[in-house]
Structures are given as C-alpha cells and as structure tokens.
Design a protein around this nucleic acid. Structure first.
Lengths: 107, 107
DNA sequence: ATAATACGGAACTGTTTGGTTCCCTGTCAA
DNA sequence: TTGACAGGGAACCAAACAGTTCCGTATTAT
C-alpha cells in the first residue's frame, strides 16, 4: 500500500506536533522546530525525515539552514480515499448509522 | 492526546484491512475475520482489541461467538479535527479538479 | 457425557522504533 | 583564517510491537 507511510508517519504524537507547528508557521528551520521539544535535534531530524518520506513535507537548503514546508495533499487523500470509505456526510448521520449497524445482524 | 490511539490503530495495514472487511460486511465473528488472513487467530484478536481500544469497533458475545461492529465516528473526527487544519476547502477543490482532469485523460 | 467448536490468557521471540551519543561536513562572521 | 553555527551520518540502546505457541474455558452438537 502506498498510504502506509502516511499512516505510520501520522501515528507518532511528536510528528503530529511537528506538522502542527509547520501549519502554524511554514518554512521553519530545523533549529526552530526543535525549540521546546524536549528531545535532541537528531531525533527531530529523524521525525522530519519520516514525514518527508511520507511526502507530508519537503525542505530545501538555504545556506547552512534547512527550511521545511508542509504538504497537506497526502492527508487530504486519506480524507478522500480512506475515510470516505466510511463516509457519511455529517456526524448526526454517523451516529444513526452506528446504531443501525449494531441492530442489523445481532440482537 | 485522545486521538493517539486512533492514529496508532490505523497505522497497521492488517488493522486497516480488518476495518475494510468489517466495512464490507458488518457483524462478523472472529473466525470469519481470520479467514485468508495469513496469521493466527490470536494475532487477529490482538489487532481487534487494539481497534476496540481506539473505539474504532465494538463487539458483543453471542453464544460462543463474538460479533464485531465497526464504529466510523473516530475516523470522522480525524477528518473534521485534524485534517481540516490543513486548508481543506482549497484541497478538496484541488482534488476535484484533479479528478476532472483524470476523466478527460482517461488514465 | 463427550467431543468438537469458538474464543481467552499469557509467556516468549524477533523486529521495529524512538531516542541517545559521538563525531563529521559545510557555511557564515570576525 | 579561525571559530562558532546549522545541520548530517551512523552506531547504539531500551522499549514497544507484531506475531507465535501452549494451554484453558465456555458453548454447542452428537
């Protein structure tokens, strides 16, 4: 599966936090992303590499810095392809569905 | 974070496959879900326990069987809470465009 | 009653993973 | 040109994880 890397990348809280940070402010450097993150720079770099491998972000060198840019497309693809498998337009419809499904076979 | 269990649960291909199967046919037993899955019943049971802990499915005993029911609500919450962080309107417009273009090309 | 069926529990194992430490390379400023 | 700054590579470690095997407990069928 192609989306495996994306799901695995999103499975870690630190990586989701990094995406959050990049979403707040795009184009941050490695050092910037490390601030306040209670882990070493190398650990953060590893997480960013995993996110990059999942195509969730990209970066480019600028001098001795590395600028990071988020790529929301794969997440959107999950929303459209995977999650839409369970697609019900609204939450109210969803809870109705759940109840109906539970009645369906059992009881 | 509350959604951590959901992301972790979705990170495994076998678990996604189990959700797929349940989506195709709800209310299946453990044995049914094991069929053709190239792993032992106990392994499948573990996966299902993880999915249950993430509130992605539930089950109830019926005699000596265990019937499984999918719960799409947490996935929808991801779609609404997490994914909407990344400029969903622009992206869905983009993917609609992409689909339209793919129809024209026929590839 | 006996045996097959359907599942539960727990110990054990190899691999993955999140994180560290140590050291190296490239870039900018004084 | 020297040194500080920003990042890169790789070895290493402990914990988590996917999966197995062995055995136990209800439930159903004969």
């Amino acid at each position: 599966m192609q989306d495996d890397a994306v799901f695995k990348a999103l499975a870690d809280p630190s990586r989701r936090q990094l995406l959050d940070r990049l979403h707040e402010k795009n184009g941050q450097t490695l050092g910037e992303l490390c601030e306040g993150l209670d882990m070493t720079r190398q650990a953060v770099a590893k997480h960013l590499a995993i996110l990059k491998a999942a195509n969730l972000l990209s970066w480019k060198r600028q001098g001795r810095e590395r600028l990071h840019f988020i790529n929301p497309v794969p997440i959107n693809e999950i929303a459209e392809r995977w999650i839409s498998k369970f697609e019900q337009p609204r939450l109210s419809a969803l809870s109705k569905l759940k109840k109906r499904l539970e009645k369906q076979d059992g009881n």
